[in-house]
Design a binder for these strands. Sequence first.
DNA 1: ATTAGGG
DNA 2: CCCTAAT
Length: 427
Amino acid sequence: MTCRIEFYEFVTSINSCYGPLFWWDLFFLFVLLMSGNYDLTSIICVSITVFGSGLMYLDWKRKQVYYYGKPCYTRQRSQRISPFKRRKLFDQIPTSRYGEFQREGIYNSPYKRSNGDKRFAAKGASPSVASQQAPPKSKSRDSIVKLHIKSFKIPELFIEIPATATVGSLKRTVMEAATAILGDDLHVGILLQGKTVRDDSKTLLQTGICHDGRHCNLGFMLEPKSAQIMPPLHTDDSRLLSSGMPQDPTGHSVSLTPQPEPSDVSPLPPVMNMGCHVDNNVNAVCSLADISTNNTMPDSQALVAVPAITMEALAVVPFHQKSRHSEFLQRRTRRPFSVSEVEALVQAVEKLGTGRWRDVKLRAFDNAKHRTYVDLKDKWKTLVHTARISPQQRRGEPLPQQLLDRVLAAHAYWSQHQAYQQLKIPV
DNA sequence: ATTAGGG
DNA sequence: CCCTAAT
């Protein structure tokens, strides 16, 4: 029996973080997840929300982290990790903007300072960055690149296991395959505007990662040495209401073939020197597990603490099953209905009833491409609920009571006449 | 592709 | 909003 493990992606979500240093935070968390005693079969669709509450600023030059304006050092951040939070969304392209770096090079992982953990040192990173005190001449306002890292992406795992194998052996096999990836040549890949950035010597400014305050699509991924770049996914569509970014609705692109697209930002293909080399998987597991277990971490060790981890079930699907080809659909960006939209919805439902959402869509939201008939149906459901609860319990933009009254009236009316009116086709 | 409901 | 069984 050949199985393909899909949805194999480690997802993290870091909110309000500043600074690419979090690559290592994420990676560290990742390693912890992969190496801990957690059932590997559940390391799927898990996301981690770090620093979910509160702003965190990282001063790239000073190597300091600020919380709510109060300075602290990176090792203290472990206190602010919020519980892991499950999320099903992936392939988020973080945005970054502003900022310029005084120095080029990759941030040196603090892990390198911990004894025996040199394995996790950033190989090839400019060694002076982390170890030396940065010149505090910064205005530090423009020197910060704000990154919102929502996910890492790692390639699929392919394993083969006899059909007579036990579930336990399957889990172990998965574990081995996963740790093998970690142990060998895992490194962080960067996608900028859908193209891989491979020139590590360039500054963020030069590569356009922090292009004059404009948003740019930036993606990170964990990839083993031999794996090719996964095709980048779309970015958020918060701005485009109808234009729509060219996405891939069919959702393939899991191909492990290299992307033919030439990379503007990376003429040279040197291996990412952020590669993390773990000499021994077992040792790595142990050391990391210890770190996560012990609250007393050497000040130079882990950046983050790992709270209780909620795991999700792994999606191990038969190889021939027609899954979404290992594509991860992003949860649509939330678009609260405006009052005018509600108005249009109510009016349409008053006319068409509550069983013909497709017609409602065509009638009142035909040009609103982001509103599907399912959305409208759902919205009506919430509208009815909203109209029934007390105004104090309502959230979002206040809706005119008169409008909510119409909702209730229409709901009551069509509840009575639905069966009958279903036969008629008024337009 | 739509509907209808639960998650 | 998502997921999906049932049409």
